[in-house]
């Protein structure tokens, strides 16, 4: 390390340079493990991701939790706002990075996005498995909003704003996780989802289940938000490429869809 020069401080990554080029890494170490010499032949992608974020090897249970959640989140489907954004980018011939940036920007918000997940994680951190605390959090989520770049939340994080029952896939995911993994948070959510939904006046959403997984993995709200944002990108990429090949003529445009209330010609 060059102490008298600008440097990047990191607990995650270390590099050893090639003997004859100080800018090329001969060896890279992730949390002390030789990436190409030791990890590459021995770890799964899920293990590597967990190690990257958490700094240590995951248990079988942690791997299973992450794997299930990564699959559940990988493709929100073409009607999802973030995927729509990626497709809307690609049908006009924008670059693939622009499509993913569009998916990230739209998928960052407090309607099924990273912000909702972040806020839900904060609720978990405060309330843990205590129904009284959850009741307080749910009933006060809109109190004392702090002015921020984010729009004020218009539904309680972790609950569906446009449904009056818990959707089938949310229950499927929660039941599978309870069956295949060990988690006090998921078990508690499974036992209390109806009470929580009654308190909220809206059913729990997939975000509640996903945040319970991240809570089980001991992710911070920030780590969970990042992981969630990453996890939802594969579907955006695949659908963007599909629509790129199909073309803009078959992509929704709503040619007569806008009704202006103040058209100066009327």
């Amino acid at each position: 390390m060059m102490k008298d020069k600008e440097n990047i401080t990191s607990k995650i990554w270390m590099e050893e340079a090639e003997d004859n080029n100080p800018f090329l890494a001969k060896k890279s170490y992730l949390h002390g493990y030789d990436v190409f010499g030791d990890l590459l032949p021995n770890v799964s992608y899920i293990e590597y991701l967990y190690l990257l974020f958490r700094g240590d090897a995951p248990t079988d249970n942690q791997c299973k939790l992450l794997e299930i959640i990564c699959i559940a989140l990988a493709n929100p489907g073409p009607r999802d706002h973030s995927v729509m954004a990626a497709m809307s980018s690609s049908v006009g011939g924008s670059g693939n990075a622009a499509s993913l940036m569009a998916a990230l920007a739209v998928g960052a918000g407090s309607l099924n996005g990273g912000r909702e997940l972040f806020l839900c994680m904060q609720q978990w951190d405060i309330s843990e498995c205590d129904l009284d605390k959850w009741q307080h959090e749910i009933q006060s989520y809109a109190d004392n909003p702090v002015e921020d770049v984010w729009p004020v939340a218009t539904h309680c994080p972790g609950f569906e704003p446009h449904s009056d029952f818990i959707k089938t896939q949310t229950i499927q995911l929660l039941e599978l996780l309870c069956e295949k993994t060990e988690s006090q948070y998921l078990n508690w959510l499974n036992e209390n989802m109806n009470q929580l939904s009654s308190i909220s006046g809206a059913p729990i959403s997939m975000v509640s289940v996903v945040s319970a997984v991240y809570k089980t993995l001991d992710f911070s709200a920030e780590q969970a938000e990042m992981f969630y944002l990453l996890s939802r990108l594969p579907g955006a990429a695949a659908h963007a490429l599909e629509q790129q090949s199909i073309g803009w003529k078959k992509f929704p445009f709503w040619p007569n869809g806008i009704k202006l209330s103040n058209d100066p010609k009327k």
């Binding site: 390390m1 990191s10 607990k11 170490y29 002390g32």
Partner: peptide, 12 residues
């Protein structure tokens, strides 16, 4: 540009 040794590793 940063040389490999510009990473100040503080991990395990």
């Amino acid at each position: 540009p940063l040389r490999c040794e510009r990473i100040n590793y503080t991990g395990v």
